[in-house]
Design a protein around this nucleic acid. Structure first.
Lengths: 331, 331
DNA sequence: TTTCATATGTCAACCGGATGACATAAATTT
DNA sequence: AAATTTATGTCATCCGGTTGACATATGAAA
């Protein structure tokens, strides 16, 4: 079935294609009557401009790619939502790429994005050899991930979040605090969370304790790692987990082992997604400003595409959300 | 900065564009030496075909839109992930649309998708006047939502899920079972969950009880509705919630009110997302085959686009996941 | 009266690649 | 030797809309 084109509209309205194009793009001189006549014809024929043709001509796809490990993860699911919303506001559309943190996938996507001529890329994933990104420096912004010196990054104030969380545990009387981190070998601003922890611990002359729970291992393995922390003779009375999922896993294990939270051990997480607040409202956590991260990433990227100077780093404040796992049941 | 085109490649290689195009598309006669020469030149110049031009010419964008309420919701976040994965397998890309269940948004998206010439649409949202979809009947598949007689739908076996859940509660000794539903006025296969519940309850001559928790209201209002169920003199000893979030909210309220789950009241949910299994592993639930739903929706849509005959309805089996909220702590 | 802003039209070129038509040779079969 | 297959080239056209150049005709301002 043939689509209605601008030529059909011109013929039907008895004007030239140029005139129709002028109406559509509000260019040059057009009288009101002419404008109306053309618009009526457009409506009559139900003409819908072919954006593919426009994109092709203008060399702008109006697509922005978002590369995340997976939208399965609530944090990235929420990020995706807010990025899409922000993009829509500025007339851009979202092309979503799930890298699964696999560098091969990520490379394939970069190639694909190049073919598809996406206008820009927002990276929230963690893998490809950074050098790959060098070819795209003028059209990339990253979220919580330092790619190259020149690629702007938007992040939460991870360091301060780590400090706030640790401070809170100390305020609540904890003296033996465990820090649960994700993959330590991946260099990400999320590591600043641990640094915040370390600084607070040192300030109080407490002992530093770490366990690492890699992102990609099985649930059972994760649980095993957590269980081991209950085995030694050294008892923790506070836990700062670098993300909420690990925090919740810790809660589950603690409960199973017969420990009472927050009496025996207090727990605080990091991320504070909607999902967590709905599903695990009892968990105290450091809330990342996901919506703002998305908005800043989008506006920074669009500015960058326009050739404007943009900040190399945007750091957004986090907020402490205190609930039962640090404070006792609030009846 | 000018991009390398097929003409540049042809010139550099000393052949005609037609020949280059033949190599790229594997058409007509090409000797191996020629093929190699062209491919080498392509590599040398780092030529990357402009998919916008191809799409424009072939009139195929290779984009499939997925309309969901919001990827913030874990169910849709996971669905998005699996849809993207399935599409990628067949060379298609995902254009994500968050409708927020708002019909105005949805209409805007439909218009936009028309302009962008997406090849097909997968609908997982619930709003626009169905008539709007009539114009797209030959390029739409829906997930868990009956749109028109002619639009194929892929769904979980909601009815059976409702029966299984209710049966399980009855098996565990419950006699006064409450059914928590989402919006009842929205016509969706998810309503079959309640029908499954009703049929099992009637079979056993128990009393039917319903509360409705609209999707879009505030958390506090939801909690209020749930709290009220504890107020009357009629006590429930079992709860079947139409989705896991409501099930968890119920658990939270029950705990706050001093009830013991599963001793005083047993609870079973619906959806069984990854998130829930990680964050609320204690919740018994009916697991939807999200990955299969996505895969079936994608393959059905692609078949439809190819003009093949497709099934009008695909119903995929659900699975019961039993945990502590129906069975007592499994130490 | 002359200039100028307004209003429209025609025409052609362009964006980058795909494709069909047609010509020409060499290599391979019949 | 004739017919066919294989291998390349040239050329023009198309996809649908945008844009610049240029012509023409008003009506208004200088």
């Amino acid at each position: 079935m043939k689509r209605v084109t601008i030529h059909d509209v011109a013929r039907k309205a008895g004007v030239s294609v140029t005139t129709v194009s002028r109406v559509l793009n509000d260019r040059g001189y057009i009288s009101n009557e002419m404008k109306e006549k053309v618009l009526n014809t457009i409506e009559e024929l139900n003409y819908i401009p072919n954006e593919m043709a426009r994109s092709f001509f203008s060399n702008q796809s109006k697509f922005i790619a978002l590369i995340v490990p997976t939208t399965e993860n609530p944090f990235f699911g929420e990020l995706t939502f807010h990025v899409e919303k922000a993009l829509a506001k500025f007339g851009y559309h979202l092309f979503i790429c799930n890298s699964l943190n696999d560098s091969e996938n990520e490379e394939k996507y970069l190639r694909l994005l190049n073919e598809k001529r996406v206008d820009g890329i927002i990276v929230g994933s963690h893998n490809v050899d950074i050098s790959e990104y060098k070819n795209y420096e003028d059209q990339i912004v990253s979220i919580e991930r330092k790619l190259t010196k020149n690629i702007p990054m938007v992040q939460s104030d991870d360091y301060n979040g780590g400090r706030l969380a640790t401070q809170e545990l100390i305020t609540q009387g904890c003296t033996n605090i465990l820090c649960v981190t994700g993959d330590k070998n991946v260099e990400t601003p999320a590591n600043d969370r641990s640094i915040g922890y370390v600084d607070e611990i040192e300030k109080n002359n407490y002992r530093k304790n770490f366990i690492e729970i890699p992102f990609q291992i099985d649930l059972d393995e994760k649980l095993k790692i957590i269980k081991e922390t209950f085995q030694g003779d050294f008892k923790y009375d506070g836990v700062f987990a670098g993300d909420d999922v690990n925090a919740k896993l810790f809660l589950n294990v603690a409960k199973e082992m017969g420990y009472d939270v927050p009496k025996d051990v207090k727990v605080i997480g990091f991320d504070g997604t909607q999902s967590i607040r709905y599903l695990v409202p009892e968990l105290s956590t450091v809330v990342q400003p996901i919506e703002n991260l998305a908005y800043e990433a989008v506006t920074t990227l669009l500015d960058l595409l326009k050739g404007k100077k943009v900040k190399n780093e945007v750091i957004l404040p986090v907020e402490l959300y205190l609930s039962e796992t640090t404070q006792g049941s609030k009846k």
